[in-house]
Simulated scan of single mutants.
Amino acid sequence: MSQKNKKQFGVWMDTHNATIIGRKDSDTSEFTVLGHVKNIGADGNSNENAANNQEIALTQKFFKEIAIKMPNIDQIHITGTGQIQEQFMKFLADTAQYKNAESSDSTSNKMSDEDTVAYFEEYFK
């Protein structure tokens, strides 16, 4: 399978935002923004246990919303700030549909959509 026909995706993410980059179809060589996903985060809660459970549930929902925008992944590169990328990679590895995807991660600061597209185009060359 050639590099151009692989279903390659890139995700820039932090704990509250994700930008999903990919090709609209595998025949096109241009990467584009496929979508943005927001994680609203837990609201104020006086019970620490309830707040922790809510945060876990919202993070799982955030990961699922990102994954929906990337069907049939062959390769994915996840970048962003913090440790959320590692958690997302684990989520993908534990999900049957994505467990065979080749994944990698790195750390980077927030970029504009255009810079993010350029970053992933360069990464997947």
Results as ranks from 00 to 15, higher is better:
residue 53 N to L: 15
residue 74 D to T: 08
residue 64 K to I: 02
residue 28 T to G: 04
residue 49 N to S: 08
residue 102 E to V: 05
residue 23 R to S: 10
residue 118 A to H: 02
residue 102 E to M: 00
residue 24 K to E: 00
residue 19 T to R: 10
residue 92 L to G: 08
residue 41 G to L: 06
residue 53 N to Y: 15
residue 5 N to I: 14
residue 1 M to A: 14
residue 3 Q to E: 15
residue 77 H to I: 03
residue 3 Q to G: 12
residue 45 N to G: 14
residue 4 K to A: 15
residue 16 H to D: 09
residue 28 T to I: 01
residue 103 S to D: 06
residue 68 I to K: 10
residue 55 E to F: 01
residue 99 K to V: 05
residue 23 R to Q: 12
residue 5 N to W: 15
residue 27 D to R: 14
residue 27 D to F: 07
residue 25 D to Y: 06
residue 17 N to C: 02
residue 33 V to G: 02
residue 95 T to C: 11
residue 58 L to C: 06
residue 19 T to H: 01
residue 121 E to K: 15
residue 21 I to T: 02
residue 46 S to I: 08
residue 99 K to M: 09
residue 60 Q to P: 01
residue 78 I to G: 05
residue 57 A to Q: 07
residue 76 I to K: 03
residue 119 Y to K: 01
residue 78 I to L: 14
residue 4 K to T: 08
residue 77 H to F: 11
residue 72 N to P: 11
residue 105 D to C: 00
residue 46 S to C: 08
residue 80 G to W: 02
residue 87 Q to M: 08
residue 64 K to P: 07
residue 25 D to N: 05
residue 60 Q to M: 06
residue 7 K to G: 13
residue 98 Y to L: 01
residue 112 S to P: 02
residue 11 V to G: 08
residue 75 Q to C: 03
residue 68 I to Q: 06
residue 83 Q to K: 09
residue 65 E to H: 13
residue 54 Q to S: 15
residue 71 P to Q: 11
residue 122 E to W: 06
residue 59 T to H: 08
residue 112 S to I: 01
residue 47 N to A: 03
residue 43 D to H: 09
residue 2 S to H: 09
residue 125 K to D: 04
residue 10 G to T: 11
residue 81 T to Y: 12
residue 104 S to A: 06
residue 105 D to N: 09
residue 98 Y to A: 03
residue 77 H to V: 02
residue 76 I to F: 08
residue 71 P to T: 06
residue 29 S to L: 00
residue 27 D to Q: 13
residue 103 S to C: 04
residue 98 Y to I: 04
residue 84 I to V: 14
residue 92 L to K: 00
residue 56 I to N: 13
residue 41 G to R: 09
residue 24 K to F: 07
residue 98 Y to T: 11
residue 32 T to A: 03
residue 36 H to C: 07
residue 38 K to G: 05
residue 98 Y to D: 09
residue 18 A to G: 13
residue 4 K to P: 12
residue 21 I to C: 06
residue 32 T to Q: 01
residue 85 Q to V: 06
residue 26 S to H: 14
residue 106 S to W: 02
residue 46 S to G: 10
residue 44 G to F: 12
residue 2 S to P: 03
residue 88 F to L: 03
residue 6 K to Y: 14
residue 90 K to N: 12
residue 8 Q to E: 07
residue 94 D to F: 02
residue 29 S to P: 00
residue 50 A to D: 12
residue 124 F to W: 07
residue 11 V to I: 15
residue 52 N to F: 14
residue 73 I to C: 09
residue 81 T to N: 13
residue 60 Q to K: 13
residue 105 D to S: 12
residue 65 E to G: 06
residue 118 A to W: 01
residue 53 N to Q: 15
residue 37 V to E: 05
residue 20 I to R: 02
residue 32 T to W: 05
residue 10 G to S: 11
residue 2 S to R: 13
residue 117 V to Y: 05
residue 44 G to H: 13
residue 69 K to F: 06
residue 82 G to S: 04
residue 51 A to H: 10
residue 13 M to Q: 11
residue 83 Q to P: 07
residue 67 A to P: 08
residue 63 F to R: 05
residue 8 Q to R: 09
residue 85 Q to T: 13
residue 57 A to F: 14
residue 103 S to I: 03
residue 53 N to F: 10
residue 21 I to E: 02
residue 38 K to F: 15
